[in-house]
Design a binder for these strands. Structure first.
Length: 337
DNA sequence: GGACCATGACGAA
DNA sequence: TCGTCCTGGTCCG
């Protein structure tokens, strides 16, 4: 899953590829047929993220009419949530802006490194884009919703949520969410206050979207390691100053994740081995960063996540894992007393 | 072809 | 705390 950084990256991608365009909206799988019919032919006027929620705003009454590219009271919003294994896959015409081709669950799938191959067949449409015509690839897998713009197409598979909501309903969803460290309006005080008023463990509170929006299992484990805090300590027993430091670290880590498309929490001095000339060790890098200069190999990106049994990068103590509330929790008992 | 797994969240009990 | 939903890749027979 896609944690919050992925969703913010998606919001930017939609803005880049589709903002201001009239979109064809369909549901190849059929399970979103009604919603797709409502949105089809409308103009995309907004693309926002709050935590793990993605909101795409479509122009209201005048539908496709050109107008100010801004959301209003009659905007209809497509609300999607990727859940554990949802993903958006993109393909574009030669003249489309270059974007990552698949964003979402960390699966290896066709289209992640190369463009999606065009599949001949009745579902392939020929679209005239600004400078060329291109073959829109057929939907691959269980595509809940497909957005087709002037020079790109986006397919959504496996979402845990996909629905059309009104501005009022959108506000209701946002009202249930805590502050988002990636958003400029993220309020640290609200986070510190929420953690401090509960005896629920800090590890569980970080996964509660009403406490802080966008944090998932990786950021939860990694930020607690970097703060040196035991995940099982009750929130109210963690000093407010430390909780504030955790927020500030989340801001840095998650914005970096949104900018680069991958979660990297290790500091350079804790990544090993490094070749004598100082170049990063070879190996697979994380999703969407293959070939990016300076990208960190996937086995060096984390301190504790999925490293149970391996020696802590800082003190050498074996990293522990324990199932808590149905999710795996990873931590170093020495560095996080 | 089937079991299992994954960065999530909901509701019932 | 448990069951349930969403999908596809991997590994095993």
């Amino acid at each position: 899953m896609p944690e919050g950084h992925t969703v913010h990256r998606l919001a930017r991608t939609f803005a880049t590829l589709f903002d201001g365009q009239v979109l064809r909206v369909s549901s190849p799988q059929g399970r979103f047929a009604d919603g797709a019919a409502v949105l089809d032919g409308r103009r995309l006027v907004a693309s926002e993220a709050w935590g793990k929620q993605l909101f795409l705003g479509f122009a209201g009454a005048d539908r496709s009419a050109a107008g100010p590219s801004a959301a209003g009271p009659d905007t209809l919003w497509l609300r999607t949530h990727l859940g554990l294994y949802g993903a958006w896959t993109f393909a574009g015409a030669p003249d489309a802006p270059e974007v990552a081709h698949a964003i979402g669950a960390p699966r290896r799938r066709i289209g992640e490194r190369d463009s999606i191959p065009s599949v001949p067949g009745p579902q392939v449409a020929r679209v005239t884009s600004a400078s060329d015509t291109w073959e829109v690839p057929a939907p691959r897998g269980q595509v809940r919703v497909r957005l087709l713009g002037d020079h790109a197409v986006a397919d959504l598979t496996g979402p845990t949520a996909c629905e059309v909501v009104t501005p009022e309903e959108k506000r209701a969803v946002e009202a249930r969410l805590g502050p988002d460290p990636i958003r400029d309006d993220g309020d640290p005080a609200a986070f510190v206050a929420a953690v401090g008023r509960s005896r629920v463990t800090i590890g569980q509170q970080l996964m509660d979207q009403a406490v802080v929006a966008g944090v998932g299992n990786i950021y939860r484990a990694e930020v607690l390691f970097r703060a040196g805090v035991d995940p099982l300590r009750p929130g109210r027993d963690v000093p407010a100053a430390t909780v504030r430091e955790i927020w500030d670290d989340l801001v840095v880590l998650m914005r970096d994740g949104a900018d680069h498309g991958a979660i990297v929490t290790t500091r350079p001095e804790h990544r090993t081995p490094v070749s004598p000339d100082g170049a990063p060790a070879p190996g697979r890098t994380r999703q969407n960063t293959d070939g990016t200069p300076g990208s960190v190999p996937s086995d060096q990106a984390f301190y504790v996540y999925h490293r149970d049994g391996l020696p802590c990068r800082v003190c050498g103590t074996p990293v522990l894992v324990k199932e808590l509330a149905g999710r795996n929790l990873f931590w170093c008992p020495t560095c996080q007393p």
